[in-house]
């Protein structure tokens, strides 16, 4: 019956919510629908405005938009492709660095920690520049010249902060497993590597999924940064379209279209992250 002196919830260590807090206002689907509807209304209104204010000789705003929409969508798909590849690369590297962060060998642990902190705290755009300018444009391996195009460098540039964040997620996940698991595994004669891969990581995996998904959504939105370093993505094409048409009244609907694409992709991920988080919290 013994209750510790700090059983008030507020006195317990606070765990920062990784994603959106429970809304408690209305059903999530309704909210998403509502936001989407607001979006659509805004979009429609801006389009109508563009229609009305268009120069008399020009094509209708809707026609112009329809002409460009497939191209912008292709650019957006390229953003998604980049996000997949960066996430894959960042996750592989990040998991290894994260495990190194809990290594028993002090130099390994400290180096992994230092790298993680450094790349986590550096701005994504600066890291992207770093990769773009400082990676060679071709590699020479055993006399074989491998070209290193800009988009691959961009993937590496984006994977750097992803890896650092994954590393923190992995470390946090491993740390969340009670030490009793390590002890009981040790007492069953598992070695450290076996314990990590067969006992700790499978348990920690579940807890790493929501923050990992959250990170993916952040990365997807960050892929637009590649337009800044001169790679053609959805944002570049949107801008190009606006320059080509040179119709200022189309600016708002065109940008809203692009924002809408990202929202339609990222919002469901955010919802899924939240519901997974809740489910795992209940089980934990």
């Amino acid at each position: 019956m013994r209750v510790s002196a700090t059983d008030l919830p507020v006195l317990l260590p606070y765990r920062a919510p990784a994603a959106i807090a429970p809304s408690g206002l209305a059903a999530p689907m309704l909210l998403g629908g509502g936001t989407l509807a607001c979006f659509a209304i805004l979009f429609g209104a801006s389009l109508a405005l563009a229609q009305v204010t268009a120069r008399p000789a020009g094509e209708s705003a809707a026609t112009v938009l329809l002409r460009w929409a497939p191209l912008i969508f292709q650019g957006f798909l390229f953003n998604i492709l980049i996000s997949f590849l960066s996430m894959a690369l960042g996750t592989v590297v990040g998991v290894l660095v994260g495990i190194a962060q809990v290594s028993v060998v002090a130099p390994v642990r400290r180096t992994a920690w230092g790298l993680t902190q450094f790349f986590r705290n550096a701005p994504w755009l600066v890291l992207l520049f770093y990769a773009m300018f400082l990676l060679p444009f071709e590699f020479n391996v055993l006399g074989l010249t491998i070209a290193f195009p800009a988009w691959i460098k961009a993937i590496i540039g984006l994977a750097l902060p992803v890896a650092a964040n994954v590393s923190e997620i992995v470390r946090g996940g491993i740390r969340s497993i009670p030490s009793g698991q390590w002890e009981s595994a040790e007492s069953l004669a598992f070695n450290r590597r076996q314990t990590m891969w067969m006992i700790i990581l499978p348990q920690a995996f579940k807890r790493m999924i929501p923050p990992w998904m959250n990170l993916y959504a952040i990365l997807t939105m960050a892929t637009t940064l590649i337009s800044v370093v001169g790679i053609q993505d959805g944002l570049t094409i949107t801008r190009a379209a606006l320059v080509a048409e040179s119709r200022p009244e189309l600016m708002i609907p065109m940008y809203l279209l692009l924002l809408l694409m990202f929202f339609a992709y990222c919002y469901p991920i955010a919802r899924a992250t939240l519901s997974l988080e809740r489910r795992f919290n209940v089980k934990a």
Binding site: V3, A5, T6, D7, L8, L11
Partner: peptide, 10 residues
Amino acid sequence: YPGELSGGQQ
């Protein structure tokens, strides 16, 4: 502060 007191003291 409450956090430093025992349950009975609180």
